[in-house]
C-alpha cells in the first residue's frame, strides 16, 4: 500500500538506517492475520514487561526498606546495600518502564550513558571537594 507513495525525505531515513520502505517491504508479504497475531504477541510481551518491572521494583524497594526498618545490619553495610538496591531499581525502571534496551538502534542509550558519566563527574566531584574542604576547615559536614 503505502510503499508506492514517494516521500521526499526517504533518502534521509535510508542513510540513517531508518528506512520505512524497507520496513513496508518486509511487512507487506505477511498476511493481515499474521500481522494481527504479531501485534497481539507484542502487546502481550509488553504487558508482561510492565508486570515484571512492577514486581522487581516492589522487591527492590521493600527489601532495603525492611532492612532499614528492622536495622538488621550495621550502618555502613546498610548504606552500601541501599546504594546497590537503588542502582538495581533504577536499571529495572529504565529497562522495563522506560523500555530502553541494549539492542535498539537509537541514541537514547548513548545519551543516558553520557549523561550518567557527566552526572557522576559533577556530583562525585562536588562531594569530594566539599568534604575535603570541610575536613580541612573543621566544618560540621560529616554524615
Amino acid at each position: 500500500m503505502s510503499e508506492q507513495v514517494h516521500y521526499p525525505d526517504e533518502q534521509a531515513r535510508d542513510q540513517r538506517g531508518e528506512s520505512w520502505t524497507v520496513f513496508h517491504a518486509a511487512i507487506a508479504p505477511l498476511k493481515r492475520e499474521e500481522k494481527m497475531r504479531a501485534q497481539r504477541r507484542e502487546q502481550r510481551q509488553e504487558f508482561w514487561s510492565y508486570c515484571w518491572g512492577l514486581v522487581l521494583a516492589l522487591v527492590l524497594t521493600l527489601v532495603p526498606f525492611a532492612m532499614v526498618y528492622w536495622a538488621v545490619l550495621p550502618r555502613f553495610s546498610l548504606l552500601i546495600v541501599i546504594g546497590v538496591f537503588a542502582l538495581a531499581q533504577i536499571i529495572v525502571h529504565i529497562r522495563f518502564f522506560l523500555r530502553i534496551g541494549v539492542r535498539q538502534k537509537r541514541e537514547d542509550l548513548q545519551l543516558i550513558l553520557f549523561s550518567a558519566l557527566l552526572l557522576i563527574i559533577m556530583v562525585a566531584g562536588t562531594i569530594w571537594i566539599m568534604f575535603n574542604l570541610a575536613d580541612r576547615m573543621s566544618m560540621p559536614m560529616h554524615p
Partner: peptide, 27 residues
C-alpha cells in the same frame, strides 16, 4: 529524542540538588 535530552538536562539539575543535600547533611 528532544524530550529525552530535556530530561537528561533535568537529571543534572536534580544531581546538583542531591549534591547540595549530601554536603549539607550535617549542617
Amino acid at each position: 529524542f528532544g524530550f529525552w535530552v530535556f530530561m537528561m538536562s533535568d537529571a543534572i539539575l536534580f544531581g546538583m540538588v542531591f549534591g547540595t543535600y549530601v554536603i549539607q547533611l550535617d549542617a
